[in-house]
Amino acid sequence: MAGMTHVLDPDALSDDARALSVPLPPYRDVTRSDSAFRAFLHGLPGVDQVGAEARVAQLGSRSIKTTSKAWAIDTAISMVDLTTLEGADTPGKVRSLAAKAKSPDPTDPTCPRVAAVCVYGDLAGVAREALGDSGVHVAAVATAFPSGRASRAVKLADVRDAVQNGADEIDMVIDRGAFLSGRYLEVYEEIVAVKEACGDAHLKVILETGELVTLDNVRRASWIAMLAGGDFIKTSTGKVSPAATLPVGLVMLEAVRDFRAATGRQIGFKPAGGIRTTKDAIKHLVLINETVGPDWLHADWFRFGASSLLNDLLLQRQKLRTGHYSGPDYVSVD
């Protein structure tokens, strides 16, 4: 199946996985006009919000212990996009974050490295240089992150700049203003344009679900992002609360599941913002396994956008290894 290829490797990209100005079949004609696209999106099945909340509450009560927990912690560490998105970010902070990404627990060489370091576009070069050939990816937020309030030309320049600086993953934000006022095709076209500007870089599309109001909107936005050629759909910027809640995750995962069933192309999912504890992370892993299955239980298809989560994962890992509780003095301060 073409969609199953390892999209992080640009050479492995099949033609139909590249950004297309028309969506994959069988959805080629849904973007032919504003009204057709609206009819398609509003024709998606409605989300039962109460049912979604009940489902995630039930999945969240799973108890993951001992060897399963050890596996879950290591898997979660390998899926972390270690993030710093502050106005006060400095090259020094990015370098220390890169060092932590390569070797999260310096006292234990068996600890896996994280998936990527996520920074603002202007610092992508610093991150790229610090990470070298370690295999940790450089993700950069672009398109006037986090609000997305800039002209298309500025957003595309932002993307090209980040890619030129060495980012191999771009986290873009959708135009929520356009989405909420019903200009779906505009949102779609912007994602297509950004995907084109990304070149070989991997595109993650941030829906900012905290601003989308309803789960029905989350489902529609997910479909827009997938049809437009996004490689990942991502919940939030982390600057808006609520961010990555489990019901939102469930709806987005159902969207990627349905999309693969229909088109054969697999899309990744990245919850970001508000995931701070190992328990939260494990709940997400359970949600993936039960919603889309183990095909997504890999850093190529699932990421955690987080900063403080990694330290909690490391503390839990140390607890499992040493048998006693660890403390924040035993992990690095970000």
Partner: peptide, 9 residues
């Protein structure tokens, strides 16, 4: 025993 071993105590 848990408190004596706890690294944050």
């Amino acid at each position: 025993t848990w408190l004596a071993e706890h690294a944050d105590v």
